[in-house]
Computed example of a mutant assay.
Amino acid sequence: MSSSEILAELKGVRERSYGEWTSFCPLCAVRKHRLLIREDAAGQTDIHCFRGHEDWEILQAIGKTRRALWPRPPHKYHAPDQEWWDRARLFANGKRLPPMSEQ
């Protein structure tokens, strides 16, 4: 299973950088509490709740098991597509970063 299948079940998903997203925690009653979701080059997904919920609790809340954190073999690393390089980024503090192709 890939991170895209986990992200599809979460609300308020925003891309933070390549292979890294934030979303609302499904267990936190207040929507301001965030999750950090990362996928490494091997395809393994890491979920971190800033309020302290365990990854298995979050997965259970969205109807997944811990097996969802590891990819189905064989998983091959893929480079970012051209659209990703050409898109401007927005830092958490609101400042804009030029597209990677212009840096």
Rank of each mutant, 00 (worst) to 15 (best):
M1D: 01
M1F: 11
S2L: 12
S3R: 08
S4C: 09
E5G: 10
E5M: 13
I6H: 00
I6E: 00
I6S: 00
I6Q: 01
I6G: 00
A8W: 02
A8F: 08
E9H: 12
L10T: 10
K11Q: 12
K11N: 11
G12Y: 09
G12V: 04
G12S: 08
V13T: 10
R14G: 04
E15M: 11
R16V: 11
Y18N: 11
Y18L: 08
Y18T: 08
G19F: 05
G19Y: 02
E20K: 12
T22Q: 07
T22N: 10
S23C: 11
S23G: 07
F24Y: 10
C25P: 01
L27Y: 01
L27A: 00
C28H: 02
C28E: 05
R31K: 14
K32C: 10
K32V: 14
K32A: 10
H33F: 13
R34K: 15
L35A: 01
L36T: 11
L36M: 12
I37T: 03
I37N: 00
E39K: 13
E39H: 05
D40N: 15
D40C: 14
D40F: 08
A41E: 14
A41I: 15
G43I: 03
Q44K: 15
Q44R: 15
Q44E: 15
T45E: 00
T45W: 01
D46A: 14
D46Y: 12
H48M: 13
C49I: 09
C49D: 09
C49P: 00
F50D: 12
R51D: 11
G52H: 07
H53F: 07
H53M: 12
E54H: 14
E54W: 13
D55G: 11
D55I: 13
E57Q: 15
E57P: 03
E57H: 14
I58F: 01
I58V: 15
Q60Y: 11
Q60F: 09
I62V: 15
G63E: 09
R66K: 13
R66T: 15
R67W: 11
A68G: 02
A68H: 04
A68Y: 06
L69S: 01
L69E: 01
L69D: 00
W70P: 06
R72C: 09
R72I: 14
R72N: 10
P73C: 08
H75W: 13
Y77D: 04
Y77G: 02
H78F: 09
H78C: 09
H78W: 09
A79T: 11
D81S: 07
D81I: 08
Q82S: 06
E83H: 06
E83R: 07
W84N: 05
W85M: 05
W85I: 03
D86P: 02
R87I: 03
R87P: 02
A88L: 02
L90R: 07
L90S: 03
F91W: 05
F91P: 00
A92M: 05
A92D: 05
A92T: 06
A92N: 05
N93Q: 06
G94E: 06
K95I: 05
K95Q: 05
R96Q: 03
L97Y: 03
L97N: 03
L97M: 04
L97E: 05
P98W: 01
P99A: 02
M100D: 04
M100Q: 06
S101M: 02
E102P: 01
